[in-house]
Design a protein around this nucleic acid. Structure first.
Lengths: 108, 108
DNA sequence: ACGCTACTACGATGAATATCGAAATATTCG
DNA sequence: CGAATATTTCGATATTCATCGTAGTAGCGT
């Protein structure tokens, strides 16, 4: 069969995404951890991510990130690897994702 | 009397601020509106801001922004004009505030 | 002193949400 | 086919939080 075409879960057009929605999605510690992990590997499934919450919660967070236009999710067998929409986000909100990923831990 | 010294409300050291706290503070529509308004005028009191919530709510939001390291609040008579901590934020999270302030409305 | 203004603090309330477990779906593997 | 895997969906719960009204504090003007 022709398997060169990937199927993707529905995701918003990047131009229709509001900055408030993006900030709300990124303003959660667990989701920020997911985003950082995805930034390091470029693609990962829910179960491969090392986050301290249950699988159903990871799936929930991934859905929030997807609907906010932050990640794309591909259908690959029974898995759904997601990746950051880096170029889309850079075009829509230049410098935003970079600034967040470059953020250093606070001094305690 | 020597009135060259301003008095300020307590605010966190910018280096001790966490990115999650900043994102949470900015992820609210009303607070984002306040931040945008402050970016336009450089200094403003709570009552001078044109936001669609009651004064006690504006004060609440300003406190959140202050504790997140986003605004500084000066004591001036009975008023408390606040301003964006632009340079502090730029040093702590380079490009973040600029990216958010430059965000354009979504296409609907 | 008295009223007016600006803001803060407190308590209450209703809505949003992060988390979990269980059930359902779909796919791969034996 | 049957079992295991990956993920989603649903329901429940507990917490967080945005908003408001009222009351309190403090400075300014008359």
């Amino acid at each position: 069969m022709d398997d060169t075409q990937d199927t993707w879960l529905p995701q918003p057009d990047i131009d229709s995404v509001d900055i408030t929605t993006v900030l709300q999605a990124l303003a959660d510690p667990t989701r920020l951890q997911i985003v950082r992990a995805l930034a390091a590997v470029e693609e990962s499934t829910c179960t491969a991510l090392d986050v301290p919450v249950k699988p159903s919660t990871v799936s929930h967070h991934m859905g929030i990130l997807r609907e906010a236009g932050i990640v794309s999710t591909r259908l690959a067998g029974n898995a759904r690897p997601s990746r950051l929409r880096r170029e889309d986000l850079e075009r829509r909100f230049p410098g935003l994702l970079t600034a967040i990923l470059n953020a250093t831990p606070p001094t305690r």
